[in-house]
């Protein structure tokens, strides 16, 4: 087990697109253990992606179970994750281990259907909402070389909350 170095902007490697994981072996499990240890070492991160520690493979960890009143699937290792369907949009404030001392508002889908493999290579599908869905979208962005700073919108954008943010009518407040 080891705590890995986190790449920080403006490191250009964070813009790299990660490749598909094809070998589900002990080396992968060892790396994921280190990645989790690295996540827990930092400031309260609910997720981490392999490229943040310089390994450009499609591997993320998400765990929002420590947050009260938040629907979640617990500790998740998501290998080759793929969003199959998304719905609804909401603004939320995000920060990132790779961008210390900065937070910004980002629009994300409020509900997603996700397909991903686990450490053994088994495929699973998850229906996610809210905070957990946001965390997964943030981490999958890393696999595509995107950071939340690439998606930040103006604070003022949120002044007028339009109905379009809450499709299907029922979610608006």
């Amino acid at each position: 087990m080891a705590i890995l170095d986190i790449l920080r902007l403006p490191d250009p490697r964070l813009k790299q697109v990660s490749s598909t994981v094809e070998r589900f072996d002990a080396a992968l499990r060892d790396f994921v253990a280190d990645l989790e240890e690295t996540r827990l070492d930092g400031p309260a991160a609910v997720g981490i992606a392999a490229p943040q520690v310089g390994r450009f493979q499609r591997i993320v960890i998400v765990d929002v179970s420590g947050r009260p009143k938040t629907p979640n699937h617990g500790y998740l290792v998501l290998i080759n994750p793929e969003i199959l369907h998304w719905e609804g949009f909401a603004m939320g404030r995000e920060g990132c281990l790779s961008v210390p001392d900065y937070t910004g508002n980002v629009m994300r889908a409020t509900q997603i259907r996700l397909r991903a493999q686990d450490l053994e290579g088994q495929t699973h599908e998850y229906d996610m909402e809210g905070y957990e869905a946001r965390a997964v979208q943030h981490e999958i962005d890393h696999l595509d070389g995107l950071l939340f700073v690439d998606r930040v919108v103006s604070r003022r954008t949120d002044l007028y909350r339009r109905k379009v943010y809450a499709p299907r009518g029922g979610q608006g407040r």
């Binding site: 400031p43 609910v46 404030r93 995000e94 920060g95 990132c96 905070y131 943030h138």
Partner: peptide, 11 residues
Amino acid sequence: VDVSPVDLLIG
């Protein structure tokens, strides 16, 4: 008036 939490997410 609507009061809601700011959901800061670090990832």
